Amino acid sequence: MRNVARTSLVDTAIEELREEITSGAWPVGTKIPSESQLAESLGMSRLSVREAVRVLAHAGLLTTRQGDGTYVTATDESQIALRRRLDKAAAMDIIDVRRGLDLVAARLAATKRTEQDLEGLHETLRRRDAAGSAGDLDGFADADVDFHLRVADAAHNPLLGELYRSMSEALRDSVRGMEEAALEPDSSHEDLLRAIEDGDASRAVAVSVALLDQQERDL
């Protein structure tokens, strides 16, 4: 980072740190340098750096762990705004949105999936089934969302994948909210995988519709 000598030091520090985050120099999960290290590299006081970190933490790009340090939690503030809106969305609203995304993902995945995509889907479904059998709701929710993320990835449409990832926490919460109903055995996900594996776009869409209809009834 370049040395800074400007009037609004806090604003400048915010922009410098934001650039490190959004450029990918500090990926998500990275522990950023300490306040003293940042102050030295930017040529400003620790107080200015501390305020800049506080602003970026409030924006959702950083999170500070007491006694540990500060970590990057996101790289795009627009995605954070969407995620916060989704966190407040009703479960039915989420299903309504998924009716658009899931049907497109299923149709495209059936025509564009690769062998690697299919291997990943099978592995994720095995984890989902194992968690369900063990009564592990958190593990089940994680694997369930991962399965649908992999379906979106198998569509090989980067925008669709990003949209689905922005909803991932809200999706996990919606699965957890169904509690026992979520863990009941069903073949819908296996049917969806089989349709994608067979390259049958129409059947993949039909299974996705039925799956969402069932989730709506379980709410």
Score class of each variant (00 low, 15 high):
residue 3 N to Y: 14
residue 4 V to T: 10
residue 4 V to F: 15
residue 9 L to H: 14
residue 10 V to A: 08
residue 12 T to S: 14
residue 13 A to M: 03
residue 15 E to K: 11
residue 16 E to M: 08
residue 17 L to P: 05
residue 17 L to Y: 02
residue 22 T to R: 04
residue 26 W to A: 05
residue 28 V to T: 10
residue 28 V to K: 11
residue 34 S to V: 06
residue 35 E to P: 11
residue 38 L to C: 06
residue 38 L to Q: 07
residue 39 A to M: 12
residue 41 S to G: 09
residue 45 S to W: 05
residue 45 S to F: 08
residue 46 R to G: 06
residue 47 L to P: 01
residue 48 S to R: 12
residue 49 V to Y: 14
residue 50 R to F: 04
residue 51 E to F: 03
residue 52 A to N: 11
residue 54 R to H: 11
residue 57 A to F: 00
residue 58 H to G: 11
residue 59 A to F: 02
residue 62 L to A: 08
residue 62 L to Y: 00
residue 66 Q to E: 12
residue 68 D to H: 09
residue 73 T to K: 10
residue 75 T to D: 11
residue 76 D to I: 12
residue 76 D to C: 05
residue 77 E to A: 04
residue 77 E to K: 02
residue 78 S to V: 00
residue 80 I to K: 07
residue 82 L to A: 08
residue 85 R to S: 11
residue 91 A to M: 12
residue 91 A to V: 15
residue 92 M to T: 15
residue 95 I to A: 00
residue 99 R to F: 09
residue 100 G to W: 10
residue 109 A to R: 02
residue 114 T to G: 04
residue 115 E to H: 07
residue 121 L to E: 01
residue 122 H to E: 05
residue 122 H to R: 06
residue 123 E to P: 01
residue 126 R to H: 11
residue 132 G to T: 02
residue 133 S to V: 15
residue 134 A to N: 06
residue 137 L to W: 10
residue 141 A to Q: 05
residue 142 D to V: 04
residue 143 A to T: 02
residue 146 D to T: 03
residue 147 F to S: 02
residue 151 V to I: 09
residue 155 A to M: 05
residue 159 L to R: 04
residue 161 G to D: 01
residue 162 E to C: 12
residue 164 Y to E: 14
residue 166 S to Y: 00
residue 167 M to A: 09
residue 167 M to H: 02
residue 168 S to I: 07
residue 174 S to K: 01
residue 179 E to W: 06
residue 180 E to F: 03
residue 181 A to V: 14
residue 181 A to D: 12
residue 182 A to F: 13
residue 183 L to G: 06
residue 183 L to Y: 11
residue 184 E to M: 15
residue 184 E to N: 14
residue 185 P to N: 15
residue 187 S to R: 15
residue 188 S to K: 11
residue 189 H to T: 10
residue 189 H to V: 07
residue 191 D to F: 00
residue 193 L to Q: 01
residue 193 L to I: 03
residue 193 L to V: 03
residue 194 R to K: 10
residue 195 A to E: 02
residue 197 E to N: 07
residue 197 E to L: 02
residue 199 G to I: 00
residue 201 A to K: 05
residue 202 S to W: 00
residue 207 V to N: 01
residue 208 S to Q: 01
residue 209 V to G: 04
residue 209 V to W: 03
residue 210 A to C: 06
residue 210 A to I: 11
residue 217 R to Y: 13
residue 218 D to G: 07
residue 218 D to T: 15
